[in-house]
Design a protein around this nucleic acid. Structure first.
Lengths: 109, 109
DNA sequence: CGACTAAACTACCGCACGGAAATATGGTTG
DNA sequence: CAACCATATTTCCGTGCGGTAGTTTAGTCG
């Protein structure tokens, strides 16, 4: 399997992808798409974000391969293209748990 | 196990942590610390970044629990506090491999 | 073709943040 | 105490980026 060495160049590519996930709005969009395929308008309603905004976020996520597009008549359906996103979120959630536990431990002392 | 639901609040916390990793300089620092514990000065030499800069990045990483500190005389030794960081990087590397493969497939068509 | 709608694009604003230089802090040594 | 060193903090600058509004593009329907 791949196992690239972590040269500065590779780290830059990785950072770029982390950055795409470092935005609550985009995570919110991905969370919506986790449930089902959705149009831009549906995502706008679901997230409460502006249309231009959602569209821009989707372009970014699409460019990095996080979501897929399917055009059907007047609508464009977006869907998750990469399940690893939530694998990453799960790891982060574990971190949050650990942080909370450590904080509690500190208060006890 | 934890399994927090991905509410907007939790997503904000996750995004904040992704953001910490969305910076080549910080990934570079973490990569150095992966090999061994290091002082700030050593990290400055190793990464080529400015001292103030490295120090600021370390404060951020420390605040989020990614690195640990150990003061010894005049020096402060920093070390990795969370192995999951490279688990995350590995997943991202797999993504990069997949992206490259897809790109190659596109060129072939 | 003309009216309508979904989605994308453009231009602008405000702010957060990384980088660098200067300064402050804390600890060590003579 | 004074000189010195490692680290932290402050200040400033420039830029990248998210949000919003307005406009454009493309597809549908009558």
């Amino acid at each position: 399997m791949g196992k690239l060495s972590l040269t500065p160049e590779v780290l830059a590519l990785i950072a770029e992808r982390f950055k795409a996930l470092a935005e609550p709005a985009r995570l919110q969009i991905l969370t919506c798409l986790r449930r089902r395929e959705m149009t831009v308008t549906e995502l706008v309603e679901e997230t409460g974000l502006g249309q231009a905004n959602v569209s821009k976020h989707l372009q970014l996520l699409y460019g990095l391969g996080f979501v897929a597009r399917r055009k059907e008549g007047l609508y464009v359906y977006y869907s998750l293209a990469d399940k690893s996103v939530f694998q990453l979120c799960d790891i982060m959630c574990d971190r949050l748990d650990t942080e909370a536990r450590n904080r509690r431990k500190l208060l006890a002392s």
